[in-house]
Design a protein around this nucleic acid. Structure first.
Length: 674
DNA sequence: CACTCCGGGATTTTT
DNA sequence: TCCCGGAGTG
């Protein structure tokens, strides 16, 4: 296995003398290094699998790594290996050490929507902008380890004082629900480790080697967790690329790369500069563009692949023309090169840019898939079911209680919930616990109380079974008992209901699969439930096998590669985005451009619009400054200032399309008819 | 007064 | 696409 690696990769795998930073350029085989190193540690260095943890940012990355490790390692040897996201590792720590943190082991994990709602409830407001700002502020505080007390002590302006107060109430609410948010999953373990030497030692002894993927995306909190876990010996390999740091806006701190060199003077740095993905021209363009950023570490990608096609830069009249031109070029290219739709990707800065592209792809009957979109777990019907699971898992989870108790309707209305809520608050109880209190009888009518208790007893019955009976069976019976399917058909249009029910069934099937897979050991409903909160994408199965053009934001395309890439809307104001220009964040935008360029293996087509509709007005646009940073020898411009050029290229595109259509009808239609 | 329908506008997104 | 806000209706 090791012989397949190049010198630097092999060095990175074998280096064990101290902390190691691997600067892995785009397409330089960083995942191979991590997976090979895991295998190396186990097979050659006497490490036990359970002493090693590889940490990623997304479930997808974790899954991919898991698969690649198991290709090189038999089951026996990989048993106990941790390949997890930061959040999932944090959850594992918290589950085991919950008592130290004042939590029970079965705590709930709230997603962003849940915490948003809690804030909205506390403030009794619907002001979206305000709530989002506050949510962001609280998250910032958490990442910087500022407690509510410290926050209010430091707050100078009025707004911050109020926000700090809210932060405090928010934390109290979470505790009352026995719930944590995503930030807490990292922050609480860090706090525990800092306060409790014994627990820290335990974990340091347990995890002897750490590998961290996408290190440039870590935030302060995550870095601190790594530092604590790896201890003074600093047995870790961090793999990252400062040129691909594009998540600064959500708290990732590229400075963490720099920080490593300061915190660990003996840090070894290995650069992976050989690229196995793109042609020389594409890499040259990427290098040229990124050279305009100040850099922490000098790095230049090269490849053994040929020079490749010239990079095309086209100026389009407007978005419509751009989309049409992209589609025509794509069709022509596909026809001439006998490629598949799946070899193409169209990348853009903002989600809304996909709309016009979709329209044109549809017009030409080109299959496409849009990456991202709303997550499966954000769908209302899934959240409904999950709320039952959460409540079964942790009956103190009041948000789950409210959702489950009212969906489908079961005679528990707003007044009942309000009175129950008041009572619960007065007696410092969760809604679930309060329902069983004798004192509640005076507050509620007989019928109301009866409905409430029926629901709670129902939950209790499932709770009892959840840890004994097979998960699949309990789930199925629960679904039937709450009559969710009937509820969907009662409250939705038949078509909608059908789709939603299909989603629910898919979710249940997925859960059931999870209940038995991997080591063949049965998982009960309870242990299944705790993982649901951290899973967000299970729609990973069919989308890569489908032969379709991929539409994606630049952010969502990171880590992926495509034969032929169209990069659209490369204008001042879009890429770099206007907001980013105003807030002096152009460097991150340039990295985004860099990520876009380096997704391409064989060809790269960049386009921009000379005019664009914006706020009702037609706006004149300028080509992105990044285009001027491309190497002149390797690009060819189409369209541009001379209108006739544009007409020409449009006309030639149209002629080409007509030609292709004619050919298609000659070649394809007979086949279809036969 | 509340709900629906239509049109316009849009950073980026994971856990 | 999705979300929000304004206008129009029951």
């Amino acid at each position: 296995m090791l012989h397949q690696l190049n010198t630097q990769q092999r060095e990175a795998v074998k280096y064990l003398d101290g902390p190691l930073l691997v600067l892995a350029g785009a397409g330089s085989g960083k995942t191979s290094v991590i997976t090979q190193k895991i295998i190396y540690l186990i097979q050659q260095c006497g490490y036990q699998a359970r002493e090693i943890a590889a940490i990623t940012f997304t479930n997808k990355a974790a899954k991919e790594m898991q698969e690649r490790v198991s290709q090189g390692l038999d089951k026996e040897n990989s048993k106990g290996l941790t390949i997890a996201t930061f959040h999932s590792l944090g959850m594992q720590i918290m589950r085991q050490e919950a008592a130290h943190l004042g939590y029970k082991a079965q705590f709930s994990i709230l997603d962003a929507a849940d915490s948003y709602k809690i804030l909205a409830d506390i403030l009794a407001t619907t002001d979206k902008a305000l709530l989002r700002r506050l949510q962001w502020q609280i998250s910032q505080w958490k990442n910087a380890f500022i407690s509510p007390d410290q926050a209010s002590a430091n707050a100078t302006e009025e707004g911050l004082v109020a926000a700090a107060k809210l932060y405090q109430r928010y934390q109290q609410t979470l505790k009352a629900y026995q719930a944590v948010d995503f930030d807490d999953l990292i922050k609480l373990p860090v706090e525990l480790f800092e306060q409790n030497r014994e627990v820290l030692n335990k974990w340091q002894n347990k995890l002897k080697y750490l590998l961290i993927d996408e290190y440039q995306d870590t935030n302060q909190c995550q870095y601190r967790l790594v530092k604590l876990l790896t201890g003074p010996e600093a047995r870790f390999t961090a793999v990252g690329d400062d040129d691909q740091a594009i998540y600064g806006w959500r708290g990732a701190d590229v400075e963490n790369l720099n920080q490593l060199t300061q915190d660990y003077p003996r840090l070894k740095v290995i650069k992976l500069e050989q690229n196995y993905r793109s042609t020389a021209r594409i890499l040259k363009a990427a290098n040229h563009v990124i050279a305009n950023n100040p850099k922490l570490f000098e790095k230049k990608l090269w490849s053994e692949h040929g020079i490749g096609d010239v990079i095309q830069i086209s100026a389009a009249q407007d978005e419509e023309h751009e989309a049409e031109s992209v589609v025509m070029k794509l069709m022509a290219h596909k026809f001439e090169n006998r490629t598949q739709y799946g070899d193409y990707a169209i990348l853009y800065r903002g989600n809304h840019q996909a709309r016009v592209l979709e329209q044109h792809l549809r017009n030409h009957k080109i299959p496409y898939t849009i990456s991202g979109g709303q997550s499966f777990f954000d769908k209302a019907e899934i959240k409904d079911i999950v709320s039952y699971l959460r409540l079964i898992y942790n009956e103190d989870d009041d948000p789950a209680f409210i959702r489950a108790a009212t969906t489908p309707k079961k005679g528990i209305g707003n007044t009942t919930l309000e009175r129950l809520g008041d009572y619960a608050k007065q007696h410092q109880l969760s809604l679930f616990a309060a329902a069983f209190e004798g004192g509640l009888q005076s507050e509620l009518g007989g019928r109301q109380l009866e409905d409430l208790l029926t629901f709670c007893r129902f939950i209790q019955r499932i709770q009892e079974r959840a840890s004994k009976d097979p998960a699949a069976e309990v789930l199925q019976q629960m679904l039937e008992a709450i009559q969710y399917e009937a509820f969907l058909y009662d409250s939705e249009e038949p078509r909608q209901a059908e789709i939603k029910w299909k989603n629910v069934s898919e979710f249940i099937q997925w859960l059931c699969r999870k209940a038995t897979d991997e080591d063949g050991q049965e998982r009960d409903l309870l242990s299944l439930t705790q993982m649901v909160a951290l899973m967000s994408m299970l729609e990973d199965k069919n989308d890569s096998e489908l032969d379709s053009v991929k539409l994606s934001t630049l952010h969502a395309a990171k880590g992926l590669e495509y034969g032929h890439v169209f990069l659209v809307g490369v204008e001042e104001g879009i890429l770099p985005h206007r907001e980013s220009i105003e807030h002096d964040k152009v460097e991150e935008e340039r990295r985004l451009m860099y990520v876009g360029i380096t997704r391409a293996k064989k060809s790269l087509n960049i386009s921009w619009c000379q005019k664009r509709k914006r706020a009702g007005e037609v706006e004149i646009c300028e080509a992105s400054r990044f285009l001027a940073e491309m190497p002149a020898d390797d690009v060819r411009h189409f369209g541009g200032n001379a209108t006739q050029n544009q007409e020409e290229s449009k006309a030639s595109g149209k002629a080409r399309l007509a030609q292709i259509k004619a050919m298609l009808s000659r070649t394809l239609i007979p086949i279809l008819n036969s």
